[in-house]
Structure formats: C-alpha cells, structure tokens
Write a protein that binds this DNA or RNA. Sequence first.
DNA 1: GCCTTATGCTCAC
DNA 2: TGAGCCTAAGGCT
Length: 304
Amino acid sequence: MPEGNEIHRWAERHTAAFGDKVVRIEAPSTSRFVDAPLLDGRVLKGVRAVGKHLGYDFGKDRILHVHLGMYGDWTEGTGPLPPEKGALRVRIFDSKKTGDPKRVKQESAEGSRPHRWYSEDDGSDALDPQKIAWVELRGPTDCSVYSEAEWKKLEERLGPDPLNGDGAERFVEIVRSKKTPIAVLLMDQSVAAGVGNILRAELLHRARMNPFKPGNEIDEKTLKAMWKDLVPLMKSAMVDRRMVTTRPKDRPTKKTGSPLKEETHYVYRRQGKPCFVCGEDVKTMEMAGRNLFWCPKCQSASLQ
DNA sequence: GCCTTATGCTCAC
DNA sequence: TGAGCCTAAGGCT
C-alpha cells in the first residue's frame, strides 16, 4: 500500500532490527515465495530501498527483492512469532528473540498466553527497531531473489529518488522533455521514483499546479521548487502510520503534530468537499489509470 | 455479509 | 485500454 517514503522507512527499521545478524526466513512451501530456503540462516547485511522497491542484501548475489504493490504490507512485533494465519506469508526473524518457532507454534496451538503482535497497539510508532524480533510480509507483488546485476538494472530504469539524495536536475530535465501532463508524469517511476497517487495529488496542490499542464510548459524554477518540497514532505509524511501532507496553518483547526483524520490531505479522496485553502469543491477524475484529485480554483493557474 | 475501493504494476490485446 | 494479481478496510444493506 505504500509510497516511497514508507518503503525507505521499512528499510531503515529492518536494517536496525536485523542488520549484520543471522536471520531465519520462513515461507509456506505452497506459496509463490520459493526462495526462502536459499536465504534462511544467513547473515542479512542490510536493507536498501530505491523508489518503491526493497532489497534485503544477503551477499553473494543474493538480494531479496520485495515490492509491496497495492496490497502488500509488513507487520512487526516483539516476542514469539504469532500463530500462522490462513494467508500465505513470509517471515523474517531473529530466533534469539523469538525463541524456537517449533516450540512456540505448539504453545500457540495450546492457546497459551496472548501477546502483542503490532507496534501500533500503543497508539504510536514507538516500538524501538532494536526490539523487533520478527517481521511478517503479506500480499506482495514480488518477493524473489535478485542478483546484483538485476538490482542494478532495476535502478537504471527508475528515475531520481528524492529520498536517496538525488538532485532536482534529472527530474527537471525529464519532465521538461515531455508534453505529457504533469499529473501523469508524476505517476511514472522513471520520472520520480517513489512518488505514488497520494503524493502526486498533494504535491500538485501544494505547488498550486494545474495537473493538466504539459511537462515541457513548466518552468525550471517551478519544477525545482516542487522537488525541494517533495524531499522533506516524504521524510515527514508518516505520522502515526498515516500519510500527512497538510501544513498546520492550512488545517481548519490549525492543529499541529498529529492532525485530525479529515485534515490529513488537501485533496486526496476529498472530492466534493471544500478546499482548505479557497473553499472550492475538490474535483476528481481518472488520470494515468488512477483517481486524481485537485482543487479547480487553487490549481487553475496558467494553462494559458 | 456483500460490495467497493485502495499509497501499484505488468502483461496481453 | 483492460484484465489480473491478491488483501484488508470501510461503507453499505
């Protein structure tokens, strides 16, 4: 479900939890993820992220590539592994912290003491990554082993990633070389890696940019400013496991920190509701195969 | 309970 | 351009 900012966050957390440790990897033999035995019991050197892709580096040309797609997600926890559920899942864990999975499974079957599965139980993101004992992957689009060459090929087909320190220059150059509407370009991973449907809508509103404006008609200064906005936006977007893109001053309540649920976005999924900035009804239509949301007044400028 | 929708992407036509 | 992947949440009845 995530955009690049959350992918990078998983990479950091999983590196902190498992980096340079021997990890166990389990996947049901009936699942599509047939490569687990190849990696089980090996040292995880670290976890990299580019765009919406994760790479778990086990060395020797063994990089577990994970793409969450639309439905994929990770859960994490301390203590013993949770009981297996019906769905096909992949687990990475530190057996020094979880204990022997065989024994735990038996305890679970006997209905022994319950324990917390998710960090969100305490209402915050507060679980110290050092305390994570296991993570569980559900519903990814891809979970397979890449060689270094394959990973490099992946990086080559992606555009600049704001979270990997890439500069605005490439972004500006690519956008200005195309007649395609900016809202379509922002969904293209070869233009800006990691941007997804929430960020495109919110970034365009923050820039007061008309979504239909062709890339080659946008001036360099404006594009550079959008990139400059994107970097801290992606870094700070996750608050209490929610994507937050509104500036406190634009929220009806002016509330800082964790905003009300209905104040988390300017336009994303707010069709028919009044724009926080100008009061005009937010509009929606399909664009690049996904629902685009925008304020026709704030973002009407200069199609000319 | 059922239906729709979703922060994504690939492939076939 | 549309189907398919595959899972959960939320809004309805």
